[in-house]
């Protein structure tokens, strides 16, 4: 089992209140230093609510944002300067909003040709053949190639987005909320297509979403992000059913489910901490029913237990088994 993606000490901070000269007024740590490995052929789900840093993380992984610290290793190669063109052959990105990820003034063929020409320097005939091949793989008709993006529905546009990512021949795809802009009946089509493609091309996925049920359905392993840090990592089958971190448990309890009575799972603070003045200890302590003085003073580190589950909590929930 080789490592498709290895992140070491990766973090990103943004300056707030930039000035023309001199240092900025404050720094916001969108992603706190984190280590993560994704095995080849695996689907790693990344779950978190808005503001947890999941999109920032994704953008760093494809070189669209330079990391503040740490390094990214893709298939053994260290990519330390943010250069999407160098990343592009190894790792690709599927965007959340399928329509706005396609240039409205280009035909689909023009859009599809760019990675083939720029990243792989193919000649015209080879490009045409390759596009035909990819379109067949994502179940799109070839006549679509000469149309413009606005002529497509969300589901079709997302297939085109996936096709473009495939054209770069990267073996790792970052899927950033790929179905959250789609209707449920179409969402399932795209998710199933992704599963088929993974098998056919031997891909590795990083599947980012806020929808627990979707992530659970597609992932092998899941990492839960809260306030820019990983709070728990575990197998998809186990992590929600048997959460160790109170935040994971809160997420699982909050997901609306037929037949379960509504309970407000929180009592005290209900909001995310202010990123400009982050809490001292565990970022979750103000919302946590189990928080102790230690939680308020010290940041828990991500530790792995004997079952392979990793969590960052001083007072983890008991395993039900």
């Amino acid at each position: 089992m080789s490592e498709a993606l290895k992140l070491t000490d990766l973090s990103k901070s943004f300056a707030v209140g930039k000035r023309l000269f001199g240092p900025p007024k404050a720094m916001v740590h969108a992603v706190q230093p984190l280590d993560l490995t994704v095995t080849t052929g695996e689907t790693l789900g990344i779950v978190g609510e808005s503001g947890c840093g999941k999109s920032t993380l994704a953008k760093m992984l494809v070189g669209l944002l330079p990391p503040t610290t740490g390094q990214i290793e893709i298939e053994g190669a260290v990519l330390d300067n943010a250069d999407p063109a160098r990343f592009g052959k190894r790792i690709q990105y599927v965007f959340q909003d399928p329509i706005s990820s396609l240039n409205p003034r280009k035909t689909i063929r023009q859009i599809m040709e760019v990675p083939l020409r720029r990243l792989h320097h193919m000649d015209k005939a080879t490009r045409a053949a390759r596009i035909r091949e990819i379109f067949a793989a994502v179940n799109l008709r070839e006549e679509f190639l000469d149309r413009y993006p606005h002529e497509f529905s969300g589901g079709q546009a997302q297939r085109i987005g996936i096709a473009r990512a495939l054209a770069a021949q990267a073996r790792i795809l970052i899927l950033d909320e790929p179905v959250s802009a789609l209707d449920v009946s179409v969402q399932a089509q795209v998710l199933n297509l992704l599963a088929d493609l993974k098998e056919a091309f031997g891909l590795t996925y990083l599947f980012i979403s806020h929808d627990l049920a979707v992530v659970e359905a597609v992932s092998d392993r899941i990492a839960v992000l809260y306030f820019g840090a990983i709070v728990e990592v575990g197998s998809a089958r186990e992590i929600f059913a048997n959460a160790r971190h109170p935040y994971t448990a809160l997420l699982a309890a909050s997901a609306p489910e037929v037949g379960r009575p509504i309970v407000a799972p929180e009592t005290a603070a209900t909001e995310l901490p202010d990123p400009l003045s982050p809490p001292l200890g565990c970022a979750f302590n103000e919302r946590c029913g189990f928080a102790t003085d230690r939680c308020r003073a010290e940041k828990p580190a991500l530790t792995t237990d004997e079952t392979g589950r990793a969590f960052a909590c001083f007072n983890p929930l008991a395993t039900t088994r």
Binding site: S153, G155, D183, V184, S185, V186, Q187, A188, Q189, L191, N192, A195, L212, A213, V214, E216, A217, V218, S219, D220, A236, R237, F240, A241, A252, A255, E257, V258
Partner: peptide, 22 residues
């Protein structure tokens, strides 16, 4: 439609899909 929607606790699986578009 109900079959399309994954529910939590089902584990990794293939989802039912409705072909076509509304």
């Amino acid at each position: 439609l109900i079959d399309c929607v994954p529910t939590l606790g089902g584990g990794q699986r293939k989802l039912a899909a409705i072909p076509g578009l509304p």
